[in-house]
Write a protein that binds this DNA or RNA. Structure first.
Ligand SMILES: [Mn+2]
Ligand SMILES: [Mn+2]
Ligand SMILES: [Mn+2]
Ligand SMILES: [Mn+2]
Lengths: 220, 220
DNA sequence: ACCGCGGAATAGGCATGGCTAAATCTTAAC
DNA sequence: GTTAAGATTTAGCCATGCCTATTCCGCGGT
Protein backbone atom coordinates (compact mmCIF):
# COMPACT_ATOMS: atom_id res chain seq x y z
CA UNK A 1 0.00 0.00 0.00
CA UNK A 2 2.42 2.67 1.13
CA UNK A 3 5.33 3.17 -1.25
CA UNK A 4 8.99 2.58 -0.61
CA UNK A 5 10.90 5.59 0.57
CA UNK A 6 13.94 6.30 -1.48
CA UNK A 7 13.59 10.04 -1.58
CA UNK A 8 16.77 12.04 -2.09
CA UNK A 9 17.31 15.56 -0.79
CA UNK A 10 16.48 16.77 -4.30
CA UNK A 11 13.10 15.05 -4.25
CA UNK A 12 12.35 16.54 -0.86
CA UNK A 13 13.32 20.04 -1.88
CA UNK A 14 11.13 19.91 -4.98
CA UNK A 15 8.13 18.60 -3.08
CA UNK A 16 8.62 21.22 -0.40
CA UNK A 17 8.94 23.98 -2.99
CA UNK A 18 5.72 22.89 -4.68
CA UNK A 19 3.99 22.95 -1.33
CA UNK A 20 5.38 26.40 -0.49
CA UNK A 21 4.25 27.90 -3.80
CA UNK A 22 0.83 26.34 -3.51
CA UNK A 23 0.32 27.42 0.10
CA UNK A 24 1.36 30.94 -0.85
CA UNK A 25 -1.46 30.96 -3.38
CA UNK A 26 0.90 31.00 -6.37
CA UNK A 27 -0.01 28.81 -9.36
CA UNK A 28 2.55 26.04 -9.46
CA UNK A 29 3.92 26.29 -12.99
CA UNK A 30 7.10 24.73 -14.18
CA UNK A 31 8.83 28.09 -14.35
CA UNK A 32 7.64 29.15 -10.90
CA UNK A 33 9.10 25.95 -9.53
CA UNK A 34 12.36 26.31 -11.44
CA UNK A 35 12.61 29.88 -10.25
CA UNK A 36 11.94 28.96 -6.62
CA UNK A 37 14.63 26.28 -6.65
CA UNK A 38 17.11 28.26 -8.74
CA UNK A 39 17.38 25.55 -11.38
CA UNK A 40 16.87 25.58 -15.14
CA UNK A 41 13.30 24.95 -16.37
CA UNK A 42 14.41 21.72 -17.99
CA UNK A 43 15.64 20.46 -14.63
CA UNK A 44 12.27 21.10 -13.07
CA UNK A 45 10.40 19.33 -15.86
CA UNK A 46 12.67 16.37 -15.42
CA UNK A 47 12.19 16.09 -11.68
CA UNK A 48 8.46 16.70 -11.81
CA UNK A 49 8.13 13.71 -14.11
CA UNK A 50 10.03 11.60 -11.60
CA UNK A 51 7.83 12.82 -8.76
CA UNK A 52 4.81 11.96 -10.86
CA UNK A 53 6.14 8.43 -11.33
CA UNK A 54 6.58 8.24 -7.56
CA UNK A 55 2.94 9.24 -7.08
CA UNK A 56 3.83 12.45 -5.27
CA UNK A 57 2.53 14.97 -7.80
CA UNK A 58 -0.12 15.02 -10.49
CA UNK A 59 1.41 16.05 -13.76
CA UNK A 60 0.16 16.40 -17.32
CA UNK A 61 2.40 18.10 -19.87
CA UNK A 62 1.76 21.85 -20.09
CA UNK A 63 -0.58 21.74 -17.07
CA UNK A 64 0.11 23.23 -13.70
CA UNK A 65 1.53 20.99 -11.00
CA UNK A 66 -0.12 19.80 -7.79
CA UNK A 67 0.83 17.53 -4.92
CA UNK A 68 -1.05 14.30 -4.36
CA UNK A 69 -2.09 13.53 -0.76
CA UNK A 70 1.04 11.38 -0.51
CA UNK A 71 3.14 14.25 -1.82
CA UNK A 72 1.61 16.65 0.64
CA UNK A 73 2.51 14.34 3.49
CA UNK A 74 6.11 14.29 2.31
CA UNK A 75 6.14 18.08 2.07
CA UNK A 76 4.75 18.47 5.57
CA UNK A 77 7.24 16.01 6.98
CA UNK A 78 10.15 17.93 5.48
CA UNK A 79 8.63 21.20 6.60
CA UNK A 80 8.28 19.82 10.12
CA UNK A 81 11.95 18.87 10.10
CA UNK A 82 12.91 22.28 8.78
CA UNK A 83 10.97 24.31 11.29
CA UNK A 84 11.78 22.13 14.29
CA UNK A 85 15.43 22.52 13.39
CA UNK A 86 15.13 26.27 12.96
CA UNK A 87 13.57 26.60 16.39
CA UNK A 88 16.05 24.25 18.00
CA UNK A 89 19.06 26.01 16.52
CA UNK A 90 17.66 29.35 17.59
CA UNK A 91 16.49 28.49 21.09
CA UNK A 92 18.95 25.84 22.22
CA UNK A 93 22.07 26.71 20.28
CA UNK A 94 21.59 30.46 20.12
CA UNK A 95 21.98 30.85 16.40
CA UNK A 96 20.54 34.18 15.24
CA UNK A 97 17.25 33.95 13.39
CA UNK A 98 18.78 34.94 10.07
CA UNK A 99 21.11 31.92 10.13
CA UNK A 100 18.72 29.14 10.99
CA UNK A 101 16.98 28.84 7.62
CA UNK A 102 20.10 28.07 5.62
CA UNK A 103 21.33 25.63 8.25
CA UNK A 104 17.99 23.82 8.44
CA UNK A 105 17.85 23.62 4.65
CA UNK A 106 20.60 21.02 4.74
CA UNK A 107 19.89 19.33 8.06
CA UNK A 108 16.23 18.67 7.24
CA UNK A 109 17.23 15.89 4.82
CA UNK A 110 19.31 13.86 7.25
CA UNK A 111 17.08 13.87 10.35
CA UNK A 112 16.04 10.45 11.55
CA UNK A 113 12.61 9.93 13.04
CA UNK A 114 14.21 9.35 16.45
CA UNK A 115 16.14 12.60 16.31
CA UNK A 116 13.09 14.51 15.08
CA UNK A 117 11.19 13.22 18.10
CA UNK A 118 14.01 14.04 20.48
CA UNK A 119 14.19 17.60 19.16
CA UNK A 120 10.44 18.06 19.39
CA UNK A 121 10.47 16.73 22.94
CA UNK A 122 13.38 18.95 23.97
CA UNK A 123 11.39 21.94 22.72
CA UNK A 124 8.16 20.85 24.39
CA UNK A 125 6.36 20.04 21.13
CA UNK A 126 6.31 23.59 19.84
CA UNK A 127 3.86 24.92 17.26
CA UNK A 128 5.78 27.77 15.64
CA UNK A 129 9.36 28.39 14.53
CA UNK A 130 11.48 31.53 15.13
CA UNK A 131 9.79 33.33 12.23
CA UNK A 132 6.32 32.46 13.48
CA UNK A 133 5.84 29.84 10.77
CA UNK A 134 3.64 26.99 12.03
CA UNK A 135 5.27 23.61 12.59
CA UNK A 136 3.28 20.74 11.03
CA UNK A 137 2.38 17.93 13.41
CA UNK A 138 3.72 14.43 12.96
CA UNK A 139 0.51 13.37 11.28
CA UNK A 140 0.65 16.22 8.82
CA UNK A 141 -1.61 18.93 10.16
CA UNK A 142 -0.70 22.61 9.97
CA UNK A 143 -2.63 25.31 11.70
CA UNK A 144 -2.91 28.52 9.74
CA UNK A 145 -1.58 31.61 11.45
CA UNK A 146 -4.28 34.25 11.76
CA UNK A 147 -3.38 37.91 11.42
CA UNK A 148 -3.00 40.76 8.98
CA UNK A 149 -0.05 42.41 7.29
CA UNK A 150 1.46 45.30 9.21
CA UNK A 151 0.98 47.35 6.07
CA UNK A 152 -2.77 47.07 6.63
CA UNK A 153 -2.74 47.66 10.37
CA UNK A 154 -4.83 50.32 12.02
CA UNK A 155 -2.91 53.46 12.97
CA UNK A 156 -1.87 54.19 16.56
CA UNK A 157 -2.95 50.78 17.71
CA UNK A 158 -0.50 48.33 19.30
CA UNK A 159 -0.19 44.99 17.53
CA UNK A 160 1.77 41.86 18.33
CA UNK A 161 3.95 40.36 15.61
CA UNK A 162 2.97 36.75 14.98
CA UNK A 163 4.95 35.94 11.85
CA UNK A 164 7.62 37.29 9.54
CA UNK A 165 7.37 35.96 6.00
CA UNK A 166 11.03 36.26 5.03
CA UNK A 167 14.04 33.97 4.87
CA UNK A 168 16.51 36.41 3.39
CA UNK A 169 19.32 36.85 5.92
CA UNK A 170 20.05 40.50 5.13
CA UNK A 171 16.48 41.58 5.63
CA UNK A 172 16.10 39.50 8.79
CA UNK A 173 19.19 41.15 10.27
CA UNK A 174 17.71 44.51 9.40
CA UNK A 175 14.38 43.70 11.05
CA UNK A 176 16.15 42.17 14.02
CA UNK A 177 18.09 45.38 14.57
CA UNK A 178 14.71 47.06 15.09
CA UNK A 179 13.56 44.24 17.40
CA UNK A 180 10.89 43.27 14.89
CA UNK A 181 10.65 39.66 16.09
CA UNK A 182 7.56 37.53 16.70
CA UNK A 183 5.87 38.54 19.97
CA UNK A 184 7.23 42.09 19.74
CA UNK A 185 4.72 44.91 20.06
CA UNK A 186 4.59 47.36 17.18
CA UNK A 187 2.47 50.44 16.50
CA UNK A 188 2.01 52.11 13.13
CA UNK A 189 2.09 55.86 13.65
CA UNK A 190 1.85 57.07 10.06
CA UNK A 191 1.48 55.62 6.64
CA UNK A 192 2.93 57.43 3.63
CA UNK A 193 0.73 57.45 0.51
CA UNK A 194 1.35 55.55 -2.74
CA UNK A 195 2.53 52.43 -0.89
CA UNK A 196 5.23 54.49 0.76
CA UNK A 197 7.08 53.69 3.99
CA UNK A 198 5.43 53.40 7.40
CA UNK A 199 6.46 55.23 10.51
CA UNK A 200 6.41 52.66 13.27
CA UNK A 201 7.24 52.43 16.95
CA UNK A 202 8.90 49.37 18.44
CA UNK A 203 10.44 49.12 21.88
CA UNK A 204 10.07 52.87 22.38
CA UNK A 205 11.99 53.63 19.17
CA UNK A 206 10.65 55.15 15.95
CA UNK A 207 11.61 53.71 12.59
CA UNK A 208 10.70 54.15 8.95
CA UNK A 209 9.75 50.80 7.44
CA UNK A 210 9.46 50.16 3.69
CA UNK A 211 6.03 49.09 2.51
CA UNK A 212 7.19 45.78 1.00
CA UNK A 213 8.77 44.79 4.30
CA UNK A 214 5.64 45.76 6.20
CA UNK A 215 3.69 43.41 3.95
CA UNK A 216 5.85 40.55 5.20
CA UNK A 217 5.17 41.23 8.86
CA UNK A 218 1.98 39.58 10.11
CA UNK A 219 0.46 41.05 13.25
CA UNK A 220 -2.53 40.52 15.45
CA UNK B 1 47.92 28.69 -1.07
CA UNK B 2 45.04 26.85 0.52
CA UNK B 3 42.86 24.99 -1.96
CA UNK B 4 39.21 25.52 -2.71
CA UNK B 5 36.85 23.40 -0.71
CA UNK B 6 34.35 21.54 -2.80
CA UNK B 7 34.43 18.32 -0.86
CA UNK B 8 31.35 16.13 -1.08
CA UNK B 9 30.17 13.76 1.66
CA UNK B 10 31.80 10.96 -0.34
CA UNK B 11 35.19 12.70 -0.28
CA UNK B 12 34.88 13.27 3.43
CA UNK B 13 33.92 9.69 4.19
CA UNK B 14 36.86 8.33 2.21
CA UNK B 15 39.35 10.66 3.86
CA UNK B 16 37.96 9.82 7.27
CA UNK B 17 38.09 6.10 6.54
CA UNK B 18 41.73 6.36 5.47
CA UNK B 19 42.50 8.20 8.68
CA UNK B 20 40.68 5.64 10.81
CA UNK B 21 42.49 2.71 9.23
CA UNK B 22 45.84 4.42 9.56
CA UNK B 23 45.28 5.45 13.16
CA UNK B 24 44.21 1.90 13.98
CA UNK B 25 47.60 0.74 12.73
CA UNK B 26 46.14 -1.03 9.70
CA UNK B 27 47.96 -0.68 6.40
CA UNK B 28 45.78 1.41 4.15
CA UNK B 29 45.37 -0.76 1.09
CA UNK B 30 42.77 -0.32 -1.57
CA UNK B 31 40.86 -3.35 -0.40
CA UNK B 32 40.99 -2.35 3.27
CA UNK B 33 39.49 0.97 2.28
CA UNK B 34 36.84 -0.57 0.04
CA UNK B 35 35.98 -2.99 2.81
CA UNK B 36 35.73 -0.24 5.42
CA UNK B 37 33.40 1.82 3.25
CA UNK B 38 31.41 -1.14 1.92
CA UNK B 39 32.09 -0.28 -1.70
CA UNK B 40 33.61 -2.25 -4.56
CA UNK B 41 37.42 -2.11 -4.89
CA UNK B 42 37.07 -0.32 -8.21
CA UNK B 43 35.07 2.43 -6.53
CA UNK B 44 37.82 2.97 -3.99
CA UNK B 45 40.52 3.14 -6.65
CA UNK B 46 38.47 5.70 -8.48
CA UNK B 47 37.94 7.95 -5.49
CA UNK B 48 41.51 7.64 -4.26
CA UNK B 49 42.67 8.99 -7.59
CA UNK B 50 40.38 11.96 -7.20
CA UNK B 51 41.63 12.58 -3.67
CA UNK B 52 45.18 12.43 -5.01
CA UNK B 53 44.31 15.08 -7.59
CA UNK B 54 42.89 17.19 -4.77
CA UNK B 55 46.16 16.86 -2.87
CA UNK B 56 44.57 15.03 0.03
CA UNK B 57 46.30 11.65 -0.34
CA UNK B 58 49.54 10.40 -1.77
CA UNK B 59 48.87 7.68 -4.28
CA UNK B 60 50.96 5.58 -6.62
CA UNK B 61 49.32 2.64 -8.37
CA UNK B 62 49.63 -0.59 -6.39
CA UNK B 63 51.14 1.24 -3.41
CA UNK B 64 49.47 1.73 -0.08
CA UNK B 65 47.59 4.94 0.51
CA UNK B 66 48.42 7.78 2.92
CA UNK B 67 46.93 11.14 3.77
CA UNK B 68 48.87 14.30 3.05
CA UNK B 69 48.97 16.91 5.82
CA UNK B 70 46.07 18.65 4.05
CA UNK B 71 44.15 15.38 3.94
CA UNK B 72 44.77 14.76 7.59
CA UNK B 73 43.35 18.15 8.45
CA UNK B 74 40.20 17.32 6.50
CA UNK B 75 39.92 13.98 8.29
CA UNK B 76 40.31 15.59 11.68
CA UNK B 77 37.74 18.23 10.87
CA UNK B 78 35.19 15.60 9.88
CA UNK B 79 36.08 13.53 12.93
CA UNK B 80 35.60 16.58 15.13
CA UNK B 81 32.16 17.09 13.63
CA UNK B 82 31.33 13.43 14.09
CA UNK B 83 32.35 13.18 17.71
CA UNK B 84 30.94 16.53 18.77
CA UNK B 85 27.64 15.45 17.25
CA UNK B 86 27.75 12.08 18.98
CA UNK B 87 28.30 13.71 22.33
CA UNK B 88 25.67 16.36 21.71
CA UNK B 89 23.06 13.86 20.64
CA UNK B 90 23.86 11.71 23.64
CA UNK B 91 24.11 14.36 26.34
CA UNK B 92 21.64 17.00 25.19
CA UNK B 93 19.08 15.00 23.23
CA UNK B 94 19.31 11.79 25.22
CA UNK B 95 19.90 9.47 22.31
CA UNK B 96 21.35 6.15 23.50
CA UNK B 97 25.02 5.62 22.77
CA UNK B 98 24.35 2.94 20.19
CA UNK B 99 22.35 5.34 18.03
CA UNK B 100 24.62 8.34 17.91
CA UNK B 101 27.21 6.96 15.50
CA UNK B 102 24.82 6.33 12.65
CA UNK B 103 23.12 9.66 13.14
CA UNK B 104 26.41 11.56 13.26
CA UNK B 105 27.58 9.76 10.14
CA UNK B 106 25.11 11.79 8.09
CA UNK B 107 25.04 15.01 10.09
CA UNK B 108 28.83 15.43 10.06
CA UNK B 109 28.73 16.44 6.40
CA UNK B 110 26.24 19.27 6.72
CA UNK B 111 27.55 21.06 9.82
CA UNK B 112 28.50 24.67 9.27
CA UNK B 113 31.43 26.16 11.12
CA UNK B 114 29.03 28.32 13.14
CA UNK B 115 26.97 25.34 14.22
CA UNK B 116 30.07 23.32 15.05
CA UNK B 117 31.19 26.14 17.32
CA UNK B 118 27.77 26.47 18.91
CA UNK B 119 27.68 22.76 19.67
CA UNK B 120 31.18 22.76 21.10
CA UNK B 121 30.31 25.77 23.26
CA UNK B 122 27.06 24.20 24.49
CA UNK B 123 29.07 21.15 25.58
CA UNK B 124 31.82 23.22 27.23
CA UNK B 125 34.48 22.32 24.65
CA UNK B 126 34.59 18.64 25.50
CA UNK B 127 37.53 16.36 24.77
CA UNK B 128 35.91 12.94 24.43
CA UNK B 129 32.71 11.55 22.92
CA UNK B 130 30.27 9.03 24.46
CA UNK B 131 32.54 6.12 23.53
CA UNK B 132 35.59 7.78 25.01
CA UNK B 133 36.97 8.63 21.57
CA UNK B 134 38.99 11.86 21.69
CA UNK B 135 37.53 14.90 19.92
CA UNK B 136 40.07 16.67 17.70
CA UNK B 137 40.52 20.36 18.37
CA UNK B 138 39.63 22.98 15.81
CA UNK B 139 43.26 23.25 14.76
CA UNK B 140 43.55 19.53 14.24
CA UNK B 141 45.15 18.10 17.36
CA UNK B 142 44.04 14.82 18.89
CA UNK B 143 45.23 13.59 22.22
CA UNK B 144 45.76 9.88 22.38
CA UNK B 145 43.80 8.06 25.05
CA UNK B 146 46.11 6.18 27.41
CA UNK B 147 45.07 2.83 28.83
CA UNK B 148 45.12 -0.90 28.26
CA UNK B 149 42.62 -3.39 26.95
CA UNK B 150 40.42 -4.97 29.61
CA UNK B 151 41.58 -8.34 28.28
CA UNK B 152 45.05 -7.50 29.61
CA UNK B 153 43.97 -6.04 32.92
CA UNK B 154 45.31 -7.27 36.22
CA UNK B 155 42.98 -9.60 38.11
CA UNK B 156 40.95 -8.42 41.11
CA UNK B 157 41.95 -4.85 40.54
CA UNK B 158 39.36 -2.12 39.87
CA UNK B 159 39.80 -0.22 36.62
CA UNK B 160 37.94 2.71 35.09
CA UNK B 161 36.70 2.38 31.53
CA UNK B 162 38.09 5.17 29.38
CA UNK B 163 37.10 4.10 25.89
CA UNK B 164 35.05 1.53 24.01
CA UNK B 165 36.35 0.81 20.53
CA UNK B 166 33.07 -0.22 18.91
CA UNK B 167 30.39 1.39 16.78
CA UNK B 168 28.24 -1.65 16.19
CA UNK B 169 24.83 -0.91 17.69
CA UNK B 170 24.04 -4.50 18.77
CA UNK B 171 27.25 -4.86 20.73
CA UNK B 172 26.94 -1.40 22.28
CA UNK B 173 23.45 -2.26 23.51
CA UNK B 174 24.85 -5.47 24.98
CA UNK B 175 27.66 -3.66 26.78
CA UNK B 176 25.27 -0.94 27.90
CA UNK B 177 23.01 -3.53 29.52
CA UNK B 178 25.98 -4.42 31.73
CA UNK B 179 26.71 -0.73 32.42
CA UNK B 180 30.00 -1.01 30.60
CA UNK B 181 30.20 2.70 29.75
CA UNK B 182 33.16 5.06 29.96
CA UNK B 183 33.83 6.05 33.58
CA UNK B 184 32.30 2.83 34.88
CA UNK B 185 34.41 0.79 37.29
CA UNK B 186 35.13 -2.79 36.30
CA UNK B 187 37.08 -5.58 37.91
CA UNK B 188 38.30 -8.73 36.21
CA UNK B 189 37.79 -11.65 38.57
CA UNK B 190 38.89 -14.55 36.39
CA UNK B 191 40.29 -15.07 32.96
CA UNK B 192 39.58 -18.30 31.07
CA UNK B 193 42.53 -19.79 29.18
CA UNK B 194 42.96 -19.90 25.37
CA UNK B 195 41.57 -16.40 24.91
CA UNK B 196 38.36 -17.47 26.61
CA UNK B 197 35.78 -15.26 28.29
CA UNK B 198 36.46 -13.11 31.33
CA UNK B 199 34.51 -13.11 34.54
CA UNK B 200 34.00 -9.48 35.43
CA UNK B 201 32.24 -7.42 38.04
CA UNK B 202 30.48 -4.17 37.20
CA UNK B 203 28.09 -2.30 39.42
CA UNK B 204 28.02 -5.17 41.89
CA UNK B 205 26.99 -7.65 39.18
CA UNK B 206 29.02 -10.51 37.75
CA UNK B 207 29.11 -11.12 34.00
CA UNK B 208 30.94 -13.34 31.54
CA UNK B 209 32.52 -11.21 28.83
CA UNK B 210 33.87 -12.60 25.55
CA UNK B 211 37.54 -12.04 24.95
CA UNK B 212 37.12 -10.12 21.70
CA UNK B 213 34.78 -7.68 23.40
CA UNK B 214 37.17 -7.27 26.31
CA UNK B 215 39.83 -6.30 23.77
CA UNK B 216 37.65 -3.37 22.71
CA UNK B 217 37.28 -1.98 26.20
CA UNK B 218 40.11 0.33 27.20
CA UNK B 219 40.62 0.83 30.91
CA UNK B 220 42.94 2.68 33.20
C1' DA C 1 -8.43 31.42 -39.12
C1' DC C 2 -3.64 32.80 -38.46
C1' DC C 3 0.56 34.41 -36.15
C1' DG C 4 3.78 34.89 -32.95
C1' DC C 5 5.50 34.77 -28.37
C1' DG C 6 6.56 32.77 -24.12
C1' DG C 7 6.41 28.73 -21.50
C1' DA C 8 7.31 23.75 -21.52
C1' DA C 9 9.17 19.64 -23.20
C1' DT C 10 12.90 17.15 -25.64
C1' DA C 11 17.57 16.16 -27.01
C1' DG C 12 22.04 15.73 -25.87
C1' DG C 13 25.86 16.57 -22.44
C1' DC C 14 28.43 16.55 -18.21
C1' DA C 15 30.01 15.38 -13.38
C1' DT C 16 29.49 12.34 -9.51
C1' DG C 17 29.83 8.00 -7.47
C1' DG C 18 28.45 3.71 -7.64
C1' DC C 19 28.75 -1.19 -10.13
C1' DT C 20 30.65 -5.68 -12.81
C1' DA C 21 33.90 -7.90 -15.71
C1' DA C 22 38.25 -8.05 -17.71
C1' DA C 23 43.01 -6.97 -17.79
C1' DT C 24 47.26 -6.45 -15.27
C1' DC C 25 50.52 -6.15 -11.68
C1' DT C 26 52.83 -8.15 -7.23
C1' DT C 27 54.38 -11.37 -4.66
C1' DA C 28 55.00 -15.53 -2.51
C1' DA C 29 55.42 -20.44 -3.32
C1' DC C 30 57.66 -23.85 -5.76
C1' DG D 1 63.35 -18.40 -12.34
C1' DT D 2 58.42 -19.59 -13.13
C1' DT D 3 54.01 -19.39 -12.03
C1' DA D 4 49.64 -18.81 -10.03
C1' DA D 5 46.74 -16.49 -6.61
C1' DG D 6 45.18 -12.35 -5.04
C1' DA D 7 45.12 -7.54 -5.12
C1' DT D 8 44.64 -3.61 -8.09
C1' DT D 9 43.57 -1.12 -12.00
C1' DT D 10 41.10 -0.41 -16.30
C1' DA D 11 37.09 -0.49 -19.23
C1' DG D 12 32.57 0.08 -19.81
C1' DC D 13 27.87 0.82 -17.66
C1' DC D 14 24.28 2.94 -14.97
C1' DA D 15 21.40 6.31 -12.13
C1' DT D 16 21.05 10.92 -10.40
C1' DG D 17 20.59 15.80 -11.23
C1' DC D 18 22.06 19.35 -13.22
C1' DC D 19 22.96 22.17 -17.73
C1' DT D 20 22.25 24.43 -22.73
C1' DA D 21 20.16 24.45 -27.14
C1' DT D 22 16.37 23.24 -29.72
C1' DT D 23 11.75 22.05 -30.70
C1' DC D 24 7.04 22.11 -29.63
C1' DC D 25 2.54 23.80 -27.63
C1' DG D 26 -1.13 26.81 -26.61
C1' DC D 27 -2.97 31.06 -26.09
C1' DG D 28 -3.93 36.04 -26.94
C1' DG D 29 -4.17 39.36 -30.51
C1' DT D 30 -5.31 40.39 -35.12
MN1 LIG E 1 16.61 21.49 1.77
MN1 LIG F 1 10.96 29.63 9.36
MN1 LIG G 1 29.71 10.16 7.02
MN1 LIG H 1 32.44 7.64 18.95
Amino acid sequence: MDEEKILTPAHEDYVKAIYMLYSRGVEVTNSALANQLKVAPASATNMVKKLSDLGLVTYEPYQSIALTPAGELVALEVLRHHRLLELYLHDKLNLPWEMVHEEAERLEHVLSEALEDAIAAALGNPTVDPHGDPIPTKDGKVESVAGLALSLAELKHPYTIVRVLLQDAERLIYLGAMQLYPNATVTVLKRAPFDGPLLIEVDGEHHALAHDLAECIIVK
